[in-house]
Computed example of a mutant assay.
Amino acid sequence: MNEKKKLRHRAPAPSGESREVMHEVNYFDLTQRERDAMPPFESPDFDRWVTAVLLRHNRSKINDNGVAVLQALNLCFENEVSPPRWLARQFLTRIHGFSHFEKATLDEAFDVPPISEKKRAAIARRKRLIWPVSDALMAVLKKTPETPIDVGLFEAVGDTLGIGATLCQELYAEGVELYGTPDLKAYKRLLESLGRNIRKTPRSPRRLARN
Rank of each mutant, 00 (worst) to 15 (best):
R203F: 07
C76N: 08
S116N: 06
K185V: 14
L153V: 07
I95H: 11
H23D: 09
F91I: 02
V69M: 08
S82H: 12
V69I: 08
G195K: 00
P39G: 01
A165H: 06
R89H: 15
L70E: 09
L55A: 12
L55M: 14
E3R: 04
N26Q: 15
A72E: 13
G158W: 04
N211I: 09
R89I: 13
L30W: 07
L129N: 04
L161Y: 03
Y27S: 05
R19G: 13
E174K: 11
E174H: 09
P182I: 10
E155H: 02
L194C: 03
G66M: 03
V151H: 10
P148E: 04
C168D: 00
R10M: 10
F91K: 09
F110D: 05
K6S: 15
E20R: 15
W131E: 15
A37N: 06
R56F: 04
R33E: 15
E42N: 08
M38F: 12
C168W: 02
N63D: 14
V81K: 04
L161C: 03
E174Q: 09
L92Q: 15
G180N: 10
I115C: 13
V140W: 12
K200S: 15
P205Q: 09
D183N: 01
L167Y: 09
L167W: 01
N58E: 00
E42S: 13
R196S: 04
A52K: 10
T166A: 11
K142S: 14
F28H: 11
Q71F: 01
P114D: 12
L7N: 11
A136C: 04
A173W: 00
A186Y: 02
P113M: 10
P113C: 00
R126I: 11
D111V: 04
M1G: 10
N58S: 00
A209R: 14
T160P: 10
H9K: 07
G66Q: 01
N65M: 08
A68F: 00
F154N: 06
E34C: 10
Y27N: 14
C76G: 10
L73Q: 07
I115Y: 05
E20S: 09
V21D: 06
S60C: 03
R126H: 01
K4M: 13
R8M: 15
L171G: 01
R94I: 08
I130D: 06
Q32P: 02
L30P: 04
K142G: 14
M138Q: 14
P202I: 13
K61C: 07
N65A: 07
P148I: 01
R56K: 03
V176Y: 09
L92E: 15
R35A: 11
E34M: 08
N197Y: 14
I198C: 02
